[in-house]
Design a protein around this nucleic acid. Sequence first.
RNA 1: GGGGCCGUAGGGUAGCCUGGUGAUCCUCUCGGCUUUGGGAGCCGGUGACCCGAGUUCAAAUCUCGGCGGCCCCA
Length: 471
Amino acid sequence: MTLPSKENFSEWYNEVIQVAEIMDIRYPVKGLYVWYPFGFKIRQLVYSKLREIMDREHDEVYFPALIPETELGKEGEHIKGFEDEVYWITHGGLTPLDVKLALRPTSETAMYPMFRLWVRNHADLPLKVYQVVNTFRYETKHTRPLIRLREITSFKEAHTVHKDFEEAAEHVKKAIGFYKEFYDFLAIPYMVIRRPEWDKFPGAAYTIAFDTIMPDGRTLQIGTVHHLADNFAKTFEIKYEAPNGEHYYAHQTCYGISERCIAALISVHGDDQGLVLPFEVAPVQIVIIPILYKGKEEAVMEACRKLAERLKEFRVVLDDGEERPGAKYYKWELKGVPIRFEIGPRDAEKGVAVASFRDEKKKFEVPLDSINEELILKWAEELKQRLRGAAAERMAERVKFVETPDEIEEWNGVVALHLCSNEDCGHQVEEYGKSLLGWFEELPDWLDLEPSGKCIVCGGEGRLAALARTY
RNA sequence: GGGGCCGUAGGGUAGCCUGGUGAUCCUCUCGGCUUUGGGAGCCGGUGACCCGAGUUCAAAUCUCGGCGGCCCCA
């Protein structure tokens, strides 16, 4: 079994997802895919980090998957943004329903009627909750596993309610911090970008997005943070009584990450051999491969078992299967195992193991006595730094700063430019076949560009913006 | 939104044009022998024409519809 080269990203992605047993893409409904056990383990390991971050400041809740048409339709702009992609439940058995039920495309309209009941006075604020749920959208474009789905199987959405615009705005900054911590943990570089007015979340005051760059130069939105102001509060009558006895509309935020974070994890770090996973989220962190020769099996196996025992606090596999060693190397490289030990008769005699890391070709000897938890954790951290550095370098190569509009079309990747906030100028740069992601909210440390300059269209005051083909 | 291509064992292909016993192909899988420091070899076995309707003595093959996949343009 040979993977297509990562140069052909689309092919590589489809193949690696299947062959590394992340998702089974053969489920017979468009846009729905099955999580294999191995993929699901990665998902759990990744999400437990996000849960850890969220649990510090939010309470986990669960709201129903079905939303009555009457609630979904209340906020005018919001429903306009979703109406052509909502799945409807129209019947209970054979009986037509009086009020159609929507399969949630997102949960604002499920939650906010209840927030109205939960929020009574200033002491109830701020309210901060999150849930991890599936959501449904009737996508008509190409669907892709983990990237464009009709059922998002794990939308990790947080919703907060605050006393005023400023407090909510402060919380938006905090939420950006949560997501930065999460993606730093995964060693995935990102751009924090303020979406244009005309491309923000329907019903939001403004939207800040996390975009990463895929190997083919297209960008992937891997997280969004929205300031909802009091738009939804007014629609759903979410008011509180202040200490002065007055009643005010609350201000809200919401932010979410889907399984696109897994798509980014696979795509950003993977190589021609398959997955490359950071130590913390690898279902198998360490594999030990015995090199067995006839008559010497016992000494080798004994050394391997001892090593596995020393490392038992990690997720270790001792692969004593029938395959030859080379076949095992390929198999575990495909699965992204960060650390590999080999022990053969020579090594067992010398009291060493041959170690190698998933992201590097070289092998080296380590005395068995020196292998302990501390050493492994040090290697894990170094691995993460290497992954982050390499990924940032590759992404930086995919970004080009341009000073004339003609260059936009030629560049196969992300185009950075200075642009004013005028909507006409924004639409004009989009004429060259790329979408305007928006303006950099902050500059990534891996990009060395001027934060402001003259607008490429009108010459006015401009700030650094990005254009790209998007997923 | 517009256009094109495609659906045959778990995966990949040939066969379709010109209807007539689905292939001694690659891979995977199972059993056996043999082997093991970067995808071993030989022998044997299991396993398939997307769904529905139509045309026909006869459909993987022709026609229509559905479902599913891929690519290009906007």
